[in-house]
Simulated scan of single mutants.
Amino acid sequence: MATLVRRLFKIGLFISLFLLSVRYVPPNNVWTKSESNAYWAVSEWLSVQDPRDFYFVFWVTVELIVAVLAYVAIVKLWRWYRTK
């Protein structure tokens, strides 16, 4: 039972960190000319019709990376704190 609670807590922690990263790491909604050209080139290279679709997937990936890094840091700090 304790293992289930730990797993649910870890899942809840990761989801909350992901939602916090979505909330506080905002995407840049105004593209410069060079960014626009880059997004168009990449979306054409990946055969995506709308560069905004690629932009959305790109930022969700960034948010996931931020959430994973925060989760790993919290877990390592917790383990370090517990051993002291």
Rank of each mutant, 00 (worst) to 15 (best):
Met1Asp: 12
Met1Glu: 10
Ala2Thr: 12
Thr3Trp: 12
Leu4Val: 10
Val5Pro: 04
Arg6Gly: 09
Arg6Phe: 12
Leu8Met: 04
Phe9Ile: 03
Phe9Gly: 03
Lys10His: 10
Lys10Cys: 09
Lys10Ala: 13
Lys10Met: 08
Ile11Asp: 07
Gly12Phe: 15
Gly12Thr: 10
Leu13Thr: 10
Phe14Met: 07
Ile15Glu: 07
Ser16Met: 08
Ser16Pro: 01
Leu17Lys: 08
Leu17Arg: 10
Leu17His: 09
Leu17Asp: 07
Phe18Gly: 05
Leu19Glu: 10
Leu19Pro: 02
Leu19Asp: 06
Leu19Arg: 11
Leu20Met: 03
Leu20Pro: 00
Leu20Tyr: 02
Ser21Cys: 13
Ser21His: 08
Ser21Pro: 03
Val22Ile: 13
Arg23Val: 04
Tyr24Val: 07
Tyr24Gly: 03
Val25Ile: 09
Pro26Ile: 07
Pro27Phe: 00
Pro27Thr: 02
Asn28Gly: 11
Asn28Asp: 13
Asn28Gln: 14
Asn29Trp: 07
Asn29Phe: 08
Val30Asn: 05
Val30Ile: 07
Thr32Asp: 14
Lys33Trp: 05
Ser34Gly: 06
Ser34Glu: 13
Glu35Ala: 11
Glu35Thr: 11
Glu35Met: 11
Ser36Phe: 06
Asn37Trp: 02
Asn37Ala: 08
Ala38Phe: 13
Ala38Tyr: 11
Tyr39Asp: 00
Trp40Lys: 14
Ala41Met: 12
Ala41Asn: 09
Ser43Leu: 02
Ser43Tyr: 02
Ser43Lys: 01
Glu44Arg: 15
Glu44Phe: 09
Glu44His: 12
Leu46Tyr: 10
Leu46Ser: 07
Val48Asp: 02
Val48Asn: 01
Gln49His: 03
Asp50Thr: 02
Pro51Leu: 02
Pro51Phe: 02
Pro51Lys: 03
Arg52Gly: 04
Asp53Lys: 07
Phe54Asp: 01
Tyr55Ile: 00
Phe56Glu: 05
Phe56Lys: 03
Phe58Val: 00
Phe58Met: 00
Val60Cys: 10
Val60Gly: 04
Val60Lys: 08
Val60Glu: 09
Thr61Trp: 05
Val62Pro: 01
Glu63Cys: 11
Leu64Tyr: 00
Leu64Thr: 01
Leu64Asn: 01
Leu64Ile: 00
Val66Gln: 04
Ala67Val: 02
Ala70Leu: 15
Tyr71Thr: 03
Val72Asp: 06
Ala73Asn: 07
Ala73Val: 08
Ala73Gln: 06
Ile74Pro: 04
Lys76Gln: 14
Lys76Pro: 01
Lys76Met: 12
Leu77Cys: 14
Trp78Tyr: 15
Trp78Arg: 15
Arg79Gly: 11
Arg79Ala: 12
Trp80His: 09
Trp80Ala: 14
Tyr81Thr: 13
Tyr81Phe: 15
Tyr81Leu: 15
Thr83Leu: 14
Thr83Gly: 08
Thr83Asn: 15
Lys84Asn: 05
Lys84Asp: 03
